Computed example of a mutant assay.
Amino acid sequence: MPGTPAVPIAGNRFCIVGGASLVGSATAGELLDHGAAEVVLFDNFAFGSDAAIEHLKDHPRLRLVRGDVMRMADLLRATEGMAGVLQLAAYMTLSMDRDPWGGLDVNIRGVQNALEACRANKVAKMVFASSNATYGYGPGVAGDLVEGTPFHSAGAPPAAILYGASKIIGEQLCRDAYRKWGQDYVVLRYSTVYGERQHYRAANALYIIETYDAVKRGEAPQVFGDGSETKHFVYVGDLARANRMAFESAATDVAVNASGPAPITTLELVKLVTQLAGGGPEPRFVGSEPGKVRLTSGGAFRIAHEEAFRAIGWKPEVDMAEGLRRLITWRERSNASGR
């Protein structure tokens, strides 16, 4: 309905910027399953992959558009006639470490470009994929991380701080667009995403994949430090549902966390992956690797998701054991088929 921030899925068209990705492909499937008239996956394939969208490529209501978030003309064509835009395109921490200037361009100017395209094409609502990196890293990150938690940067790797700061700026660009021309939006601060079609881009998600790979080779998986460090993951299917519900809800001008049911320590994670992979050697405790970006927190923390339930009616449903089971099942089927 015109004039309301709620955008029904059925019968509407959506563009996913950065769509050839783990979250993009899962969200496309979610929107199509709920009756979207068309879903456009917009990607330049710098980080996205054909493998991530292989299962969707023949869907009659899905369209793939190759384009770059840094080229306004590409975005204007891709978002024409869309009711909603999901802005996913971004450099993550590991990519930011390799190319900080490119990362700042995409994570800041790219978001502004997407917002300008939404304004030009009268897109009803944008959902922006932010991150729990907006709370920072290091000793100050502990306890319940709620939406008003300040940014902590002391002692963290520069790439991680650049990534988190770029997401903060992206959120403020959304707020600015809402205040200046009434562009409705919802910001979802994702915790670390994992699930089927897992990629190797996310620094924290590497714990899962590297542990699985080591166990399948018969090697001892590595645990950094004493294994007590906290991580908070969210299953990709839950996140796809959060993206859909953000469009459908009447919420606007809000930023909320989208995290999994509960945090987990690195030792618990490694043991769980080992068990689900069929067992293997006991984990090996190691120190940090020189030159490798690792994201650490100062103590036990939980990324609180209660505000997301109040704002858009969402809460996570898939716990870590079930999500990992699904990821490993997919991985083993992929390996068996030679993909």
Score class of each variant (00 low, 15 high):
286 V>M: 11
320 M>F: 12
288 S>D: 14
242 A>P: 00
81 G>L: 10
225 G>R: 07
81 G>E: 08
336 A>V: 01
204 N>V: 03
97 D>S: 14
126 M>Y: 08
200 Y>V: 10
131 S>Q: 06
333 R>V: 10
123 V>F: 05
256 V>M: 08
225 G>S: 06
119 R>V: 07
155 G>H: 06
122 K>P: 06
57 K>N: 07
319 D>Y: 11
36 A>H: 02
208 I>D: 03
199 H>F: 01
63 R>L: 09
287 G>P: 07
77 R>D: 15
258 A>Y: 05
224 F>H: 11
270 V>D: 00
287 G>K: 06
279 G>N: 13
195 G>H: 00
153 S>H: 04
221 P>D: 07
19 G>L: 04
36 A>K: 06
80 E>T: 07
85 V>I: 15
338 G>E: 07
324 L>F: 07
172 Q>C: 11
214 A>I: 03
259 S>C: 05
184 D>Q: 08
113 N>V: 00
80 E>F: 01
29 G>P: 06
18 G>R: 01
124 A>Q: 15
139 P>S: 14
172 Q>W: 11
145 L>T: 00
36 A>Q: 05
308 A>I: 02
91 Y>M: 01
157 P>E: 09
326 R>G: 08
140 G>N: 12
296 T>Q: 06
161 I>Q: 00
132 N>K: 04
50 D>Q: 14
337 S>Q: 15
262 A>M: 10
289 E>N: 10
275 Q>H: 14
249 S>V: 10
61 R>F: 01
189 R>P: 00
152 H>W: 07
198 Q>F: 05
333 R>Q: 13
279 G>Y: 05
151 F>N: 01
309 F>E: 15
86 L>H: 11
252 T>H: 12
292 K>Q: 15
18 G>S: 13
221 P>Y: 01
72 M>G: 14
155 G>Y: 04
189 R>A: 02
59 H>F: 01
125 K>S: 04
241 R>V: 09
93 T>V: 13
190 Y>R: 04
324 L>T: 13
56 L>Y: 03
300 A>R: 14
139 P>C: 09
141 V>R: 02
304 A>M: 08
287 G>M: 08
242 A>L: 08
